[in-house]
Design a protein around this nucleic acid. Structure first.
Lengths: 246, 246
DNA sequence: GAGTGGTCTAGACCACTGC
DNA sequence: CAGTGGTCTAGACCACTCG
C-alpha cells in the first residue's frame, strides 16, 4: 500500500480511502459473497500493510453506506438483500394507519425487447440492445397497492423468466443477487403525481383517472453502474411514501 | 466526565456518546449560535477531561447528522439554515428538465388559531393551545409550483406575522432560526397523490381535480421536539421530488 | 508561524460471540 | 477460552487557513 507523500495534491486521497477502494474492488470482483464474512480487521491490516485503525476507518465508511454490516464478536459481513433486515431497504411505502402488513409480490408478465432511446440512456446501453421487461403487482394485506414495470439489461439478467420470478421467495433484489450476482447498493427515485391510466386503474382497483404516485427508480450496483430502471404506480389511499430528511 | 465501569449494562453508553450528549445539550442551551464556531477539539477535550480522539468521534457523528460543520484549518461550526449551502436541505423538488431555477417564496396569509386534535397531537400541544397558521406559495421561474400550509406552535413563534414573512430574505427556516431561535434539524415527510381542490388548483394554475403530490412534513428541533407541521401540494408537471435511497 | 481539523499509528482494555 | 469488533488513549505528523 502506498503511503502519502508531500507532493500529491491533485489526486490526494487518504490511506483509508485507498483501502476502501481496494475492499470495494474485492467486493465487486466477488471475492466475498453477500452474507459472507470478510477477513477480520487484523487480517486486512496485514494484507494491506496498514494499521488496524486505518482498516477500521475504511470499513466504518462502508458500513455507513450499507455495503458492509458489522457484528460485534462475530465479524464484518457483506450486506445482502437476502437478509430479512434489508428486505424493505428500498421500499418506503408504509400503511397510513401504522403497523406492519403482510406483503406479496405477484409477477404478471416478463418479456424480451430491444432498448429504446430512453431505456438505453438510463441503463447505459446501446440502442437496440436486448432488455427484459417485467411487470408485477405488489399487494399489502391481499390488496393491490403498487404496479411496477421494470427494465433490466438482457445481458446481465439472461435466463430471467416469469417462472423464475414466480418460484422465487423474498424480495426481487435478493433474487437478483442470488441468481444473477447483481447487488443493488444505491438508487435514485423521482416522484410525481399522475392520473391512473385504464390498465393500472384496473389492476389497482381504483377509478380511472384517480391520482397515483408515480415512482421512477434507477438502481445502481458497484461503481455506480445502473442496472435497473423501474416505474411504479402507487395507490396512496391507505399507504404513503415515508421519507426521512436529515 | 464519567468513565465506563464494568457493571453498567442496562444504560451503557460509550464515553464519546456521553460527550456528544453534552455538546448537544450545549447547542440546545444556545451556548453557541448557528454559524458560530464551537471550541476547538483540544479545548473540548480539556473541558470534558477526555482525549481529543474521543471528542473527535462525538463531533464526527454530529457532523454526519448535519448538526455541525467541520472546516479544516478554521474550526467546527454550528450548522445554520442561513448558510446558502443549507437553503434547500429539506426541499427535494427539482426541475424534470434539469438545471437550476430561480425560486421565490410568496407568503399569502398568516393567522392565529387554536390547536385542533390533530395539530395538538402532531405538535405535542394541548387541545386549544395557540397555534399560528401560514399559507404560502413557492414559485420556480415565476411559476407557482407549491402551496404550503404551515402549522406552528404559537408560544414559540409569537410575533410571527405576514409582514415579518414578507420582509424576510432566504428560507423560512433561516428566519425561524434567526428570529425565533428555533433550529430544525430533522424532518419526516409522508407523500401521497391527491386530486387538486378548487383553491389549490387556482393558486397552482392547474385544472381542478388534477393529480398533485401531497407532502406532509413534521420538523423536529433538538431533542426530537416537533415544532412544525406542514402540508404542501406540489404540482409535478415540470418538477419532481428527488430522493436518494442508500 | 500558530492554530485548526485530518490522518495514521500502536497499544491497552472492554464487550460480545461461540466453542 | 480465543477471536471478533468497539472504545479510549497518546503522540506524531500532514493539510489547510489566516494573520
Amino acid at each position: 500500500m502506498m503511503r502519502q507523500t508531500s507532493v500529491d495534491s491533485p489526486t490526494f486521497s487518504p490511506l483509508y480511502r485507498q483501502i476502501k477502494g481496494l475492499i470495494l474492488q474485492a467486493l465487486d470482483n466477488g471475492e466475498w459473497r453477500p452474507g459472507e464474512a470478510i477477513p477480520s480487521e487484523i487480517e486486512l491490516a496485514q494484507r494491506f500493510n496498514v494499521s488496524q485503525g486505518t482498516v477500521r476507518k475504511a470499513i466504518d465508511e462502508m458500513a455507513a453506506e450499507n455495503l458492509l454490516v458489522r457484528r460485534q464478536g462475530k465479524g464484518t459481513f457483506v450486506a445482502s438483500h437476502s437478509d430479512p433486515r434489508a428486505f424493505f431497504r428500498f421500499l418506503r411505502l408504509v400503511p397510513i394507519a401504522g403497523g406492519i402488513e403482510p406483503s406479496r409480490s405477484l409477477p404478471l408478465e416478463c418479456w424480451r425487447a430491444k432498448a429504446g432511446p430512453e431505456a438505453a440512456r438510463v441503463l447505459g446501453l446501446k440502442l437496440g440492445d436486448p432488455i427484459i421487461i417485467v411487470r408485477r403487482l405488489l399487494e399489502f394485506s391481499d390488496k393491490p397497492v403498487v404496479v411496477d414495470e421494470i427494465y433490466l439489461p438482457g445481458e446481465v439478467f439472461a435466463g430471467l423468466s416469469l417462472e423464475v420470478l414466480k418460484e422465487s421467495q423474498g424480495s426481487l433484489y435478493s433474487l437478483f443477487e442470488a441468481r444473477f450476482g447483481v447487488r443493488m447498493i444505491r438508487a435514485e427515485e423521482r416522484l410525481r403525481a399522475v392520473a391512473a391510466d385504464r390498465a393500472s386503474a384496473e389492476l389497482l382497483r381504483v377509478p380511472e383517472g384517480s391520482p397515483l404516485l408515480s415512482v421512477e427508480r434507477i438502481s445502481f450496483t458497484y461503481g455506480d453502474r445502473p442496472v435497473e430502471w423501474r416505474r411504479g404506480l402507487y395507490s396512496t389511499a391507505a399507504h404513503c411514501y415515508l421519507n426521512e430528511l436529515g
